[in-house]
Design a protein around this nucleic acid. Structure first.
Lengths: 205, 205
DNA sequence: AGCTTAAGGTAGTAATCAATTACTATCTTC
DNA sequence: GAAGATAGTAATTGATTACTACCTTAAGCT
């Protein structure tokens, strides 16, 4: 069975997005050109502009797709938890798993955050991270209300630290140059994070 | 007193480096061109290549200078502390202060880490972060030995979390688009970090 | 003052980029 | 199987990039 040479516009757009995500795992997103994207999907460079009005539009589509996927994962993870803290843990590991499966994603997101000028793609990254953070805060507040966390804990600080815990792992991987190690370290990292936010155990009588 | 038009090669090199650091605070480092650097220091673009053999060499000098400055700060901070944990706290705040003073530095470092190909500048960033991490680990191990930390605490995980704590604050600032807020949040962030690593208090009798 | 040297300006080059054009191949549908 | 629609190609555009060759100017020294 030979492959169809001409895909539908919809299929081609999806492949373009997937290609950019793949390329991000190997290259600096700033160095991903329309030419390199086209080459990687065995198509001429001009063909891309049949399906996207500009390169910025490609980035917009890429970020949109990543956001969609990651949110779906996090939703699913959170849904299968029976306490706020368990939901946080599930989301943490879902996030890490997603990154390991798509090692280009952190590069991609950071690359957009570097843009000082608010491109559409950058705005999407910001709103994604904003919603993500709000969600974490909400779960933390619930956990605190149910007595799982220290009463004097500042929820905003804890939310920043949650993101920081993931960022620390990503950073570590960027230094090493390999995203695979973060899966092993994730459990310990979350455990340490919990130590910081949870209610202290009573000393044994 | 009118400014000298012709600086010495040494002075010009320093100004170039400072200019790049300044520009990083406003622009994506990937978008900083030799032209924009030259324009910002009121010199023609070609003049830069009288003092640097290539653009890569400029980046190398920039990272080298940043590394030198940040290490000096951290050394000074750590020296004025009388316990390992106090040294960690001093380094934490020194690091945050440095970032607030030079908001372009995180962008700059991240920009280099994005480069998949090991340019000289990227190698310098990696080795800087590596030494930084080793230092944190050493202090953590000392603190643990002196009984300031939990005995079962994994030092490597705690080191990753230390960097992550800073990264979380930086990330938060990148989303907001302003580095000034991180100074206020720094104290709370470090306090939470300590909660995670310190020996738990005994319950009152 | 006059000579020397280093710094800076002028005016390019070749390469690469995103984007556009005129044209062709392929698929679908009646 | 012809006709219309859609997807893709090949070649080219103008803008921008890092980098260079050649010339001019400023500054220090005797």
């Amino acid at each position: 069975m030979t492959q169809k040479r001409n895909l539908t516009a919809e299929e081609r757009r999806e492949r373009t997005v997937d290609t950019v995500i793949e390329l991000s795992a190997q290259d600096d997103p700033a160095n991903i050109t329309t030419g390199s994207i086209a080459k990687h999907m065995c198509v001429t460079q001009g063909a891309l502009f049949r399906h996207f009005p500009s390169k910025d539009a490609i980035w917009e589509a890429v970020i949109g797709r990543v956001a969609e996927r990651v949110i779906k994962r996090l939703d699913k993870a959170a849904a299968s938890a029976d306490s706020p803290l368990a939901a946080l843990e599930a989301m943490f590991h879902a996030h890490i798993t997603f990154i390991v499966e798509h090692p280009g994603v952190p590069r991609l997101m950071m690359g957009q955050l570097q843009h000082a000028r608010p491109t559409p793609a950058r705005r999407m990254v910001r709103s994604l991270l904003f919603r993500y953070r709000e969600r974490i805060e909400k779960l933390l507040a619930e956990a605190q209300k149910e007595g799982e966390l220290r009463r004097e804990l500042d929820v905003e600080t804890a939310a920043t630290q949650f993101i920081g815990t993931i960022q620390g792992l990503v950073m570590q991987s960027l230094i090493i140059g390999d995203m695979n190690h973060i899966a092993e370290q994730a459990q310990g990292a979350f455990h340490l994070y919990c130590h910081g936010i949870q209610k202290e155990r009573e000393a044994r009588p």
